[in-house]
Design a protein around this nucleic acid. Sequence first.
DNA 1: CTAGGGTTAG
Length: 591
Amino acid sequence: MAKSPFFIFNSLRPNPKPYFLSPFQCFTTGSEPGNLTEVAGAICGIIRTRPRWEDTLISTFPSVNFSNPAILNEVLKLQNNVFLNVRLFHWLSSQSGFSPDPLVCKSLFDSLVEAKASVLAKSFIDAVPQFSMDPRSLESLIRVLCEDGYVDEALDLFHKLKSSGVCPSLGTWNSALAGSVRAKRTDVVWKLYGEMMDRGVTSDVETVGHLIQAFCIDNNVERGYELLCQIRDGGGIPGNVALNKLMSVLSKEGNFYRVSELLHLMIATNNNPDIYTYQEVINGLCKRKKVVEAYRIFNDLKTRGYAPDRVMYTTMINGLCRMRLLGKARKLWFEMMKKGMLPNEYTYNALIYGCCKMHLLEDAWKLHKEMSNKGCNLNTISYNILIAGLCKNRMASEACDLFEEMSRNGIIRDTITYNSLIRGLCSEGDLAKARILFEELVASGLQPSTSSYTPLIEHFCQVGSTQQALELWMDMVSKGVEPSIYNHECIIAGLCKDGSSVEGMQWLSEMLERKLIPRRMTFVSLIRCLLQQDKLDAAFLVVNSMLLTGYALGKSLCCSLLKDAEKLQLFVSCSCYYLPLPQREECHRLM
DNA sequence: CTAGGGTTAG
C-alpha cells in the first residue's frame, strides 16, 4: 500500500542505469526488457499516486524518450486504464518534441471506442488529425456516438469517411439513423438518408423502420403509413418499435380504423402486438374520451394472458381519472399493488389528478404526502396538478403553501404553475397577490402565455379597473403574446361597465375586422349599454352586426328595442334582407 | 442481449 514517491524511488534505486542513457539510446535495442518494464511500472506508479504528475514526470525521468513506442506502449499496457492513458497521451502531445507513434494512436483510440467513451474518442480524433484512423474503427465510433446521442458528431465522421472515399456499411447507416431517431433529430435522419441515396446504399427493413419513426416525429403519419404500405407490399415488415410508434400517433389522432388495420397486419405477419402496442391503443382511446372501450380492452388483455405492467396500469388509471371514473381507477390501483407493482410518480399524479377532479382534496393532499414520504420524485408536474386542483376548489392559500414548498424542495416552477395560481387567486378576489405573482413570473425569466393574462384582465374588468386591464393588454401585445377572443370580450365588458360604450364599439368592430367572433352576450351587453345612454343609432348598428354574425335578437333585447318602435321598424326594413328567414319572421312577429 | 410506452391549466 506504500504509494509514496519515495517508495517508487526505493524500488528504482537498484537499477538506475537507464536514466543516464540518451533519449535515442533508451530502450531502443530491446536488450534490456526487464528495465523497460521496471521503468514503465515506475511511471505508472507516479501517474497513479500523484494527482499532478504532469508537473514532475519529465524531471523524474529526464532521459526517457516518450516518443519511443516501446516504452509508451509498455506504460499504457501496464496502466491498463484507458482514461489515464488518454490523459497521458494528450499531455505528452502538448510537450515539445513528442511525436506519437501511429500504432499507439490506433490502439488508444480503439480502447476508447471499446470503452464506449464516445466523446473522448471523438475529441481524440480531432486532437490527433495527422493520423487517419482506419475506416472500421471510425464506423465503430459512429455507432458509439449515436448510442450516446451525439448525432452531429457522428454526421461529422460520415463526412470524414466520405472525403476519404469510404462508404460505411449499412449497419453503420442504420445505427446512425436509430440514434438520430432516439435523439428526435429528424433533420439528421433526412440528411443521412439523403446521403445514403446519393451513394447508392440499398436500405433494408430496419432502415425503413427508422424512417417511419422519423415521419411520426415530424407529425407526418401519412407518409409513415405510406412507407409501411410500400414495404409491406414488398414483403417486409419493420420491427415492433416502429409499428408501435406509428400506432401511437394513429391512436392519439383518433384514427382507429387504421389502428385496427395495423393490429391485424401485425398479427398476420407474426409481429404480434405486445404490451407496448396495446398501451398505445389504450392511451389513444383515453385521449379521445373512449375510456369505456379502453377499459374493455384492458380487461380483455388480462384474460387473454397479457400481463399489464406499471405503465399500462398508470395509463388506464389516468384515462379513468380524466373521465371521473375514480372508483374504477382506485380498483386498478389496488390491483396493481396486489401484483407487486408499486405506484410511481406517474401513477400518483394520475390518481391525484382524479381526486382533484372529484373535489376530494383531502385525498389528493394525502396522496401527495404519501408520495413524498415514499421517496417518489416530486416534479413540476406533480406540483402543478395539485396546485391547479386546489385552485379550482377555492383553496388558493393552500396552493400558495405548495408553491413555497416547491422552492424549498428545489422544484422548478413553470408557466403553468404560475398561471394556475394566478387564476386561483383572481377567482378568490385576491387581485393584488395575483398581480405580484404575475410580476414574479416575468421576473423569473419565464415567458407569460395568454393564460397568464386572462384571469387578470377578466377580473380587473369585472371590478371596474378596466384601465389596469388595458395596461396588461398593452404589455401582452408588446411581449408578443396573442390575446384571445375572450380577452377582447372581457375588455368590451369592462368598457361597458365603465360606461365607455363608444370605446366598446371600437373594440367590437376591431374584433369583427379580425374575424374574431364574439359570443352573443358581448353584443347584448354592448347594446344594453348603448340603449341606457340613449345612443339608439349606435345600438342599432351593433344589433345589425349581431344579426349579421348569425345571432338571433332574442325576446328581452327586442323588448328593450321596442321602446323606440319607429326606429326599430326602420332598422328591420333596412336589414331584414340580410337575415335568415326564421329571424326575419321573428322580427316581424315582434313588431 | 435489442428497441419502444404513460402525467399538468385554460
